[in-house]
């Protein structure tokens, strides 16, 4: 665990000192800012519209951070050969991967915490309550970001960063579409479509399971069982993806 912690902290430091991160944070803050303007344009429901946009801002920025930073997490170490000095130390390849994953997860958590604080301040001013539903919505976005991090790490272990970003974005988009995909499968007459869409629906994690963003806006309850099941669902996928990444990485030659 010691090696994982040390690599995670170094990965955290690496991303925190990267200017790209600040670009993403500024983008998220702009989105939250736009949410105020859009709220102002509305007659009623100002707080709801602002909350909606605010959550979308946090979700989008954490997803971008997870996918873009995740895409270069391993490939950069290989391209620049820093992986050679790391793995020559008493560090296993699995520890290296786990350290990279937890490092980025920590960055996502810190960035999301900051953005959630900004948004909660804004919503308090607009008269919306900050309660456990708000926390639930933010937690759902965090689970999604963790899953996207492990997806990016998985693809990044064998493909170039550009392709990793393409694969990750595809998983992000399809992941939010899985329920619709099931609906289309049930309505479709084409056996080929049913088969192909069925395979896709099975191999892509359903990201809508973490979508509780409307709960604080409309006061919908989020059951603890739902949260627990979603957490287990996320944990299971992360475990599968990290294990698959470790298997690919275990016998890789660094030439």
């Amino acid at each position: 665990m010691r090696a994982v912690k040390i690599i995670a902290l170094n990965t955290f430091r690496e991303i925190i000192r990267d200017r790209i991160l600040y670009g993403i944070v500024v983008f998220a803050l702009l989105l939250i800012g736009v949410s105020i303007v859009l709220g102002e344009l509305s007659f009623a429901e100002q707080a709801r519209i602002s909350a909606n946009f605010g959550f979308a801002g946090i979700q989008l920025s954490s997803a971008i951070l997870a996918m873009f930073a995740g895409s270069t997490l391993v490939s950069r170490e290989i391209d620049k050969q820093t992986v050679l000095t790391l793995l020559a130390k008493p560090v296993s390849r699995t520890q290296f991967l786990a350290g990279k994953f937890f490092g980025l997860t920590l960055v996502v958590a810190v960035v999301m915490l900051g953005l959630a604080l900004v948004l909660s301040g804004l919503l308090l001013v607009l008269g919306l309550k900050i309660d456990k539903l708000f926390l639930g919505a933010v937690y759902g976005i965090f689970l999604e970001a963790i899953l996207l991090t492990s997806i990016a790490l998985f693809f990044g272990s064998f493909s170039r960063p550009v392709m990793t970003v393409v694969f990750s974005i595809s998983f992000f988009l399809i992941g939010h579409w899985v329920d619709s995909l099931h609906f289309f499968i049930s309505k479709s007459q084409s056996e080929t479509f049913k088969m192909l869409a069925g395979v896709i629906a099975e191999i892509v994690p359903n990201l809508e399971r973490f979508n509780w963003r409307s709960a604080p806006i409309y006061g919908d309850a989020i059951s603890s069982q739902e949260v627990m099941m979603a957490s287990l669902y996320c944990g299971g996928w992360v475990l599968i993806l990290i294990t698959a990444t470790a298997v690919i990485f275990r016998r890789r030659d660094f030439v």
């Binding site: 430091r13 620049k80 020559a88 130390k89």
Partner: peptide
């Protein structure tokens, strides 16, 4: 065993932010 060995790779690139 690894902790008893030191290694410098060819054309090393290190974490430039450190």
């Amino acid at each position: 065993i690894k902790s008893r060995i030191g290694f410098l790779p060819e054309r090393p690139y290190f974490y430039e932010y450190l």
